[in-house]
């Protein structure tokens, strides 16, 4: 094109270089995971709570996939967590599948079916409708689990769950060592998969759908299709998190479906920040530490502090609260490769 202004032109290697840089591992990410795995040796006495943190982190990662990458606000993400937990529990209790990894996969798949079916309700309407639907589905499942007590144990919870040793070798011990290795391993693998997915064209298209659904459909992206896909995937992740909790505690309860759990999860994710995958992981650590500290202080009124925290976070501004994670956010690839390209 003829033009009075000279502009530089790019070559294929520039472009593919930039794309590749987006997905490259940042040193901070590597440090993060090294630190996570080092707790295996450094904090052996804390493995019980670390297991809970790993499971909460996976659950929050699941919410980040729909909230951070697709912009869907859910008040009932615990529905999938609880569903996965009960599927795993029933598989173990009735001796259908006692091999933990297989049971985990089956629970994840079963929950993804639930996610797929309910996604069509979530697609419809505004934020408000989504709040109602997600909340309603969680309440409905809780009611179901409560009502069919001969299968689920009702309010007493699901007990007597049999879980074989992991890989046939590592028994779940009372100190929670095996449980922690197992949970951390599952979290890491599922994180890698999620990381790969958000860096794919599909992941990029999710961000486009969130930013501007009108335009996304004008470049032939099926907005509904993308939302269904990510909702289904997120459901599977939440289901696996629930199944992990059941397997490591050998117990599942109605409380897994509770609204409090869905709301906790929002808080976890907000503490860490949305849309860069690490938010839920960091948030889970902060949340659990805070929870432990405040529960000791005032065991009954933990709810009050959580409410106060939510209110304060919003009043101060989410961006400012999560500002402290900015260096970590950068690792989500953007500023990193941008900085590099500016140098060149």
């Amino acid at each position: 094109m003829n033009s009075p202004v000279k502009t530089k032109s790019v070559t294929a290697s520039d472009v593919s270089g930039l794309f590749a840089a987006r997905a490259r591992w940042h040193p901070l990410e590597i440090i993060f995971w090294l630190a996570a795995f080092s707790t295996i040796f450094l904090l052996p006495s804390k493995h019980l709570i670390l297991t809970e943190i790993a499971i909460l982190a996976l659950f929050a990662l699941s919410l980040d996939l729909i909230l951070g990458y697709a912009g869907i606000i859910s008040l009932g993400h615990a529905a999938f967590f609880g569903f996965g937990a009960y599927v795993a529990g029933l598989l173990g209790k009735n001796g259908i599948i006692t091999e933990p990894l297989l049971a985990l996969i089956v629970s994840g798949l079963a929950t993804s079916v639930l996610g797929f079916v309910t996604s069509f309700l979530v697609l419809r309407g505004s934020d408000l409708t989504r709040l109602m639907v997600t909340l309603g589905i969680a309440l409905m499942l809780r009611e179901l689990a409560n009502r069919y007590r001969d299968i689920t144990g009702g309010a007493d919870g699901l007990q007597g769950i049999v879980v074989d040793p992991v890989f046939g070798m590592f028994r779940f011990d009372i100190f929670g060592h095996t449980a922690f290795y197992y949970s951390l391993g599952v979290l890491f693998v599922l994180f890698l998969i999620a990381r790969r997915i958000v860096n794919s064209p599909f992941g990029l298209s999710l961000r486009a759908v969130k930013a501007n659904p009108l335009r996304a459909s004008a470049i032939s992206i099926s907005v509904d299709g993308r939302l269904v896909a990510i909702y289904t995937l997120a459901a599977a992740y939440a289901g696996i998190a629930g199944a992990l909790l059941t397997q490591t505690q050998a117990f599942a309860s109605l409380a897994y479906f509770d609204f409090d759990r869905s709301a906790d999860l929002l808080l976890v994710l907000i503490i860490g920040g949305t849309g860069y995958l690490y938010g839920g992981l960091i948030g889970a650590v902060v949340f659990k530490v805070l929870h432990d500290y405040l529960s000791i202080l005032t065991p009954q009124y933990w709810l009050f502090w959580m409410g106060l925290l939510l209110v304060l976070i919003v009043l101060v501004g989410r961006e400012r609260i999560t500002g402290w994670t900015t260096p970590l956010r950068d690792l989500a690839s953007r500023l990193d490769w941008r900085a590099r390209s500016k140098k060149s």
């Binding site: 472009v15 593919s16 930039l18 794309f19 590749a20 987006r22 997905a23 790969r196 997915i197 860096n199 794919s200 064209p201 599909f202 992941g203 990029l204 298209s205 486009a208 470049i219 032939s220 992206i221 299709g225 993308r226 896909a229």
Partner: peptide, 18 residues
């Protein structure tokens, strides 16, 4: 994004974009 979508790679969730 638009080019990937047109070339049928838009819903590819495993390959790194680009």
């Amino acid at each position: 994004l638009a080019v990937s979508e047109r070339m049928g790679a838009g819903s590819d969730f495993w390959r790194i974009a680009g």
